[in-house]
Amino acid sequence: MSDDFRGTPLDAEDFEKGKVLFTRDEPKAEYAWDTGVAIGRYLQELKNGRLIARNCVKCRRVMIPPRMHCEWCWRPTDDWVYVQDRGLVNTFSLCYITWDMQRLKTPEIPAVIEIEGASPGHGIMHKLGGVDPKKVKVGMKVKAVWKPAEERVGSILDILHWAPT
């Protein structure tokens, strides 16, 4: 084994006390994404207070989020199918930090929610709310809590969160 392991560690203090030089910059990177066909309809239906999926008759699969091509058989998907705004918690977390490691007193509760009417195991990522974090369980039944109709804009955030039924 080589005994040549180079690399010079620096401490936060080296920067705070100005012991080392460095350069800062913030790249400008802003985007406006088109919805595409499948997600465009998905968002439109969210605005209507409904969840919609796509069906593949060959794979016998109802998929949410919807897509225009089934990645299994790689055919165009066949039909639009309304599914329920209810489901089961497939998995969840109680998250006490933000992306930049700021602490949260009340945890966020991200979850994968298996949607009733979609194929088994087919879910979406969203957040749970209106529930004591200690009481959240895998397999728990939940229902979408929607924003009032006049406030919905066609976004995944038109669902405020999912709450136990």
């Binding site: 994404w33 997600i39 968002l43 989020p65 969840f92 977390s93 991200p110 994968v112 895998v138």
Partner: peptide
Amino acid sequence: FDHTTERPLGPNLLWIFALEMNR
């Protein structure tokens, strides 16, 4: 994360590990 269906929820990378670990 998907820019339209997931990112508006404000996810962070720990979420996916926590979700997978819990599953």
